[in-house]
Design a protein around this nucleic acid. Structure first.
Lengths: 203, 203
DNA sequence: TTTTATATTGAACATCGATTAATTCTGCGA
DNA sequence: TCGCAGAATTAATCGATGTTCAATATAAAA
């Protein structure tokens, strides 16, 4: 077979994704270039398209990698956490986004055509972040209302996400808000407290 | 002076913004084209650049228009609201985003270079949406804690925004969440309730 | 060695944002 | 009425994008 270097197809794909992720972190979604990614690993643009299929699939793979790194980051934050695991989750969410602005924003900058869905494998990998939150929310809820954990957890992720978004895109800074993390954490605490007394009252 | 049609500079700018907004609503941020906007009003691309300056300023103007339409939409929702004005706000937020997906998303898809700020005029126009929420939040808070209204309102906007974002980009649908509006409203209610009893307790 | 299969290339294409020289038009003063 | 300064507009140009695909190069099989 006509390979010039000794990389298997899978290895080549990994190199493209890893280097593509770095390129995304460097220049951001709007200045991202598939040509540049190919150049960075010493291959031509044609090879990139043969391996990745098209632009969307390259971006999807890069963004899924961001999710994986993000999930690892949050797990580590939980691992070295004290009692206040909820705070660790919120700080982990913000911490990763702030430390990886371009890559993090690319997740939400990229929209695939409405008729195309995420490959299931990517869904599963990305979903682990939410699953992690569901687990922690379940721990905090009274035993008899743990069934609500998934729905509440998704809602709290959305809450934190909104705050994180406004932090990253400068909206909060513009409005003079200087502690977005504490703000988000306050909202999360209120909702968790409500879920706790709500369950108590229903007993 | 050498104008071929009878539109003043200001009129031309308005035409570009209005038609640009329609084009954005039609094709979305990623497929948006300044050339196409110029073509749609029967002018050349050069004229567009002479009037608007550059691409970013065109997008900024279009997005500010989206904010203005959004604010009007919310005011109308409040105008025809019953007692539950908080619900009207949340439903208005989602309602506009859902009815104007492309234009709404373009607001958050567009990032201007970090060294360039939004012109003050645009800041003011866009800020009215938040001001509207601040007013309503203040109404619901006890008199002695109204000073916290701006900060709490911004936080609640972020909360709703996160839910709306997950609704629009399909995350909620993917996770099986079918009533994002109710979910967001529940979070807002909990935080408002907490602020109310919090003030009561401090009395 | 010859054949075959496949990995890889990079020029070609249409389109994009951005710039600018050249052209066209218009209102005003002489 | 005429001429012209200057504003308005265009068309051509540039470098770059995603994408395609015939041509090429290479390693394994025959």
């Amino acid at each position: 077979m006509g390979r010039r270097s000794d990389h298997s197809r899978k290895e080549l794909e990994q190199m493209l994704i890893v280097e593509g992720h770095k390129h995304m972190a460097d220049v951001g979604f709007s200045r991202f270039s598939a040509r540049e990614v190919a150049k960075r690993i010493g291959y031509s643009i044609g090879t990139l398209y043969n391996v990745m299929g098209n632009y969307d699939q390259l971006i999807i793979a890069i963004n899924t990698r961001t999710f994986v790194l993000w999930t690892d980051y949050m797990r580590q934050a939980l691992g070295s956490a004290g009692d206040d695991r909820i705070r660790s989750l919120v700080e982990g969410y913000f911490g990763f986004a702030r430390a990886n602005r371009n890559a993090w924003m690319a997740i939400y900058d990229h929209h695939l055509p409405p008729d195309i869905r995420l490959p299931e494998e990517h869904d599963a990998l990305r979903g682990q972040l939410t699953e992690l939150v569901v687990e922690e929310v379940a721990k905090v809820l009274p035993a008899d209302s743990r069934a609500q954990a998934p729905r509440l957890a998704r809602s709290l992720v959305a809450t934190v996400h909104g705050h994180c978004m406004f932090d990253i895109n400068g909206s909060f800074a513009l409005m003079g808000e200087r502690e977005p993390v504490e703000l988000a954490l306050a909202r999360v605490r209120e909702s968790l407290a409500a879920a706790q007394v709500g369950a108590q009252a229903a007993t």
